[in-house]
Simulated assay, not measured.
Amino acid sequence: MSVGADRDRESELSRPTAGQVEIPVDAICVGCGRIRVKRVRLENVDQKPTVDPAALEATDLTPFKRVCHPCEGATWWKPVAVLSGLLDNEGESA
């Protein structure tokens, strides 16, 4: 399993499989160990919707359920990083 310094997280975030709303996180599938950018609602990771996403750490977030295509079904994903840099980029393009 590699964290992948050469990954293009912005490209991953733009894919429909990342989700369409809320904060971008790097998350690891507990089934296959694949790490991908996913979007997650704050409520789905036990956070209040009013919290500032840029102030969060991955350890503040609980696992959430999403589809993992290699696992061929819904699995649990564990956040490993809040991608605050991608949050900043979204604010610039808005």
Rank of each mutant, 00 (worst) to 15 (best):
W77M: 01
T62V: 09
R9H: 10
P79E: 04
T75P: 00
A58I: 06
Q20L: 14
R9W: 08
L87W: 13
P49H: 03
C71Q: 02
L13F: 14
L56C: 11
E90L: 08
V37P: 09
L86W: 12
S11M: 13
K78N: 06
C71A: 02
G19Y: 04
C32D: 05
W77Y: 07
G31R: 01
R41H: 14
A54P: 07
D8G: 03
P79L: 02
T62L: 04
R66L: 03
A27Y: 00
S2T: 08
V45W: 08
E22K: 12
V40Y: 06
W77K: 01
I28E: 10
F64Y: 15
S14D: 08
P63M: 00
G85Y: 12
D6T: 09
P79H: 02
G85V: 15
I28V: 12
Q20D: 11
G91Y: 15
I35G: 00
C68M: 00
K38Y: 03
L42C: 05
C29Y: 00
K48L: 11
A74M: 10
S84Q: 13
D26T: 08
I35S: 03
E43W: 12
L86N: 04
G31Q: 01
A18E: 04
T59F: 08
L86I: 07
A81H: 14
P79K: 02
L13P: 12
C68A: 00
A27S: 03
D52W: 04
E72I: 01
E22I: 03
G91I: 09
H69C: 05
V40Q: 04
A18M: 06
R66M: 04
S14V: 02
A5M: 11
